[in-house]
Design a protein around this nucleic acid. Sequence first.
DNA 1: CAAACATCTGAATAGATGTTCATGTAATCA
DNA 2: TGATTACATGAACATCTATTCAGATGTTTG
Lengths: 108, 108
Amino acid sequence: MKPSSPSTRTDVIVLEEKDAAHLAELFRALGDASRIRILSAIADEELHVGAIAEIAGISESAVSHHLRGLRQMRLVRARKEGREVYYSLDDEHVTALFRQGLEHVRHG
Amino acid sequence: MKPSSPSTRTDVIVLEEKDAAHLAELFRALGDASRIRILSAIADEELHVGAIAEIAGISESAVSHHLRGLRQMRLVRARKEGREVYYSLDDEHVTALFRQGLEHVRHG
DNA sequence: CAAACATCTGAATAGATGTTCATGTAATCA
DNA sequence: TGATTACATGAACATCTATTCAGATGTTTG
């Protein structure tokens, strides 16, 4: 369970246990087809929950559940307008991850 | 469950259902702390299973199970030498995903 | 005000997932 | 040959996760 000597190596990409956990958490947040569809729906334009649900083809409740998680991880940003809540990607890191992932999937 | 009209939008990053599933599958493969440690261990140098297990602090059996999945997804490459099997990252797409993810985690 | 609407939330459930344990297979060595 | 090493594999189990359903909250409209 515990690395023998995590800090004795001098490579570029050495991950401490905490970093590994955080990184895994991030990827896990992206590791679901519904969330991918949600994120891709709001990748270029802000959308409210109902629209996201319709476009992604997921129930509004499920969308709301997913969005809560994505919000807590600061992957998406929420803006309330009247009784609707508009969501968009929080920053371009997420977009970059998307592109990188697609690159691998398409011609990896 | 089904998108109302997935192909009517003309944005850059529109994902078909199949692409979304594949992308999610890729991210899910990275969405585990043990696998992250495994991948980071072999990110810069080829290592055999025992060494990976020791560095990552995971049982050899668990490592082997993880490596099978990663192999099937072509994220890692295996090379047999005697009775040892050396693993390395399959291509630099994975490395790029790593960097991008870390970027987000560290100062996102 | 009440009713309709948009979203959120908690509980419950079914399915997926990671680890361990025991065993199997293949290679090296005495 | 038999023993040991390195890795792979399958089953079992506990834990996590995504979805649905019912209901709560807050907002607009009549």
